[in-house]
Design a protein around this nucleic acid. Sequence first.
DNA 1: CTGAAAGCGCTAACAC
DNA 2: GTGTTAGCGCTTTCAG
Lengths: 364, 364
Amino acid sequence: MTEDKKTSEEPSRSDAPRPARLLDVARLAKVSRATAARALGGYGTVTEETRERVSAAAKTLNYRLNEVARAMRAGRTQAIGVILADISNSFFANAARAIIDISTAHGYQALILNSADDPEREVEAVRVLVDKRVDGLIVAPSSFSHNAHLSEAGALSGRIVLFDRGITDLKLSTVTSDDRRGAREAVSLLIARGHRRIGLLVSTAAIEGHGPGQPRQAVSTVRDRVAGARDALKAAGLDLPPAWLRYSRNDVAVVSEAALSILGSEPRPTALLASCEEMTIGILAACRQLGLAVGKDIALISFDESPWLGVLTPAISVVRRPIEAMVSTAVGLLVRQIEAWAEPQSIALANELVVRESVFDHWD
Amino acid sequence: MTEDKKTSEEPSRSDAPRPARLLDVARLAKVSRATAARALGGYGTVTEETRERVSAAAKTLNYRLNEVARAMRAGRTQAIGVILADISNSFFANAARAIIDISTAHGYQALILNSADDPEREVEAVRVLVDKRVDGLIVAPSSFSHNAHLSEAGALSGRIVLFDRGITDLKLSTVTSDDRRGAREAVSLLIARGHRRIGLLVSTAAIEGHGPGQPRQAVSTVRDRVAGARDALKAAGLDLPPAWLRYSRNDVAVVSEAALSILGSEPRPTALLASCEEMTIGILAACRQLGLAVGKDIALISFDESPWLGVLTPAISVVRRPIEAMVSTAVGLLVRQIEAWAEPQSIALANELVVRESVFDHWD
DNA sequence: CTGAAAGCGCTAACAC
DNA sequence: GTGTTAGCGCTTTCAG
């Protein structure tokens, strides 16, 4: 029993006694560390009597397993790293809360970092999380092309899931929503209701201010939504003049300006598609300023559901993205890849078009 | 140089080679681990030449420090645990994103957990985070009284900061906003504008459904806001009949019902104070249903700012709580307690009353 | 059924 | 200036 030398008794500077270790429990129970570990861990074979003695000792000393040591020993941290593109965007904020709950339910701790849509910060975030030895990574990439750090993320190969935004030339698991289709259906509805002049306000970090041209770095969600809208317009033989299309940085002031610019064009669109909650807010602000009534002068459909949208007068129609399901799928996929060496796969979940009062008939 | 036995060369099942260790770097650079550590860590003394050799070796092997091992050795994880009372509440969702950014800026990783306002889950969350050996804890407690786990959080004593909600009989650092005053000012404004019948809709997890009686477990924010409102009413000699006061669970359906119940009372209040964004949404839903116009039939002030509130017609007035500053203060305080053994202190930050169109004059 | 001992990857006190 | 060595707290052969 006289293994290990006894620890120094000098009190730490803090008034709190350092937590008990397994060794302390073993000593008190008069067994070896191995036995104590077996008793507490519920594996191996221990007499019922010793088990109880050890449990009692553990309780007495208020013993708690040191997860850092366990992680070190096991080579697994039971943590997944999460890098969100822009946590100030409500979509990612909502994703964050779902991730916290769902990864906890899977027995993993989520370490969430924000890249603020800056590729440099994203690279750094990957580094930090890899250094922390997370067991896997969920990334909403900030750039379509700048992604070497993902393919080469060394030890994590095969344990990365792309979230919300796809990168076609990387064979990584990817969970998205089918936004091309979502946008197509939304615009098709507007067309079916008689609208002929339809504008688009699209959020992207890949631009300074706002403008009509698609930025090179635009991520897949941006591309898909615009493509989907164009699909629908084209099918109806309609045009999308630059004046009615605005890519905008996701910043209140800029968005309002972008919205004003679309709504100030001549002729003005009778309907708008907004790519996220923040774009909708900008449009509402612009309408207020111009004295235009949504649901009367301007039809509006927004991406992303939010509780307040349904209680406005008029209530705002949305393309509801299945955030919970997306997160749940992403975490599930990742956990399977971590624990069962599963193959990467890509999944695009369906959106739901929720029609409310902001869409009205408009026949010239 | 021939310390340690060489590691087995068997390839791991994964195609990814296990990451290089300090020992590998040392070998390649033909120095000892200690020297390699010194060279890489930039402490101690090493020749410029060896330093470069080691750096080169590290780069070649793509060496990254194992933070788990470092944490184990150092006894510090550079992580802070965060337990939020209800992350589905927009206030805490906003706090979460601020915490992620701000703790990163302080060089700490935030481990965020959600107690869903359940004391049991909160106790469990503390346990999990203590086991992970976080360096400190930020907690938005779910209960006013059920808090033994906080006072006795063993090794963490002196490194806990209460966030948003205070617990008077625990001498822990606490960061709150001055909600009693916030509510008082809001109600005073309504009174000054001529309102005499003022209702309150207050969110609390400590109740099933909704009702007029304050739950025992109600946390400090709930108590303070109601107390502040009562202060103002009392000063004006006004009454708060039970029919105009509703404590409600933070659930869309329940909130709407609670709002309907207040607005359905006879006589009906001419003004309402809502304790958070979700309460405001419930009130808007109820008003829609009853055909009442906010800003005309019903004056409204809400706690918590949110971008959409300002673009409604009418724009909603709010008691703006300084979320960023609160988080920043809490993290700063905690870091100081971790790194400099600072004393606990309590700070209540001022709210700002933002008056918008939802408040109107009402003289009988 | 239980104990001794090795070692996860790192750092730091102590030699040389 | 550089190397040796002893752990941090845990798990897990391998003996007994």
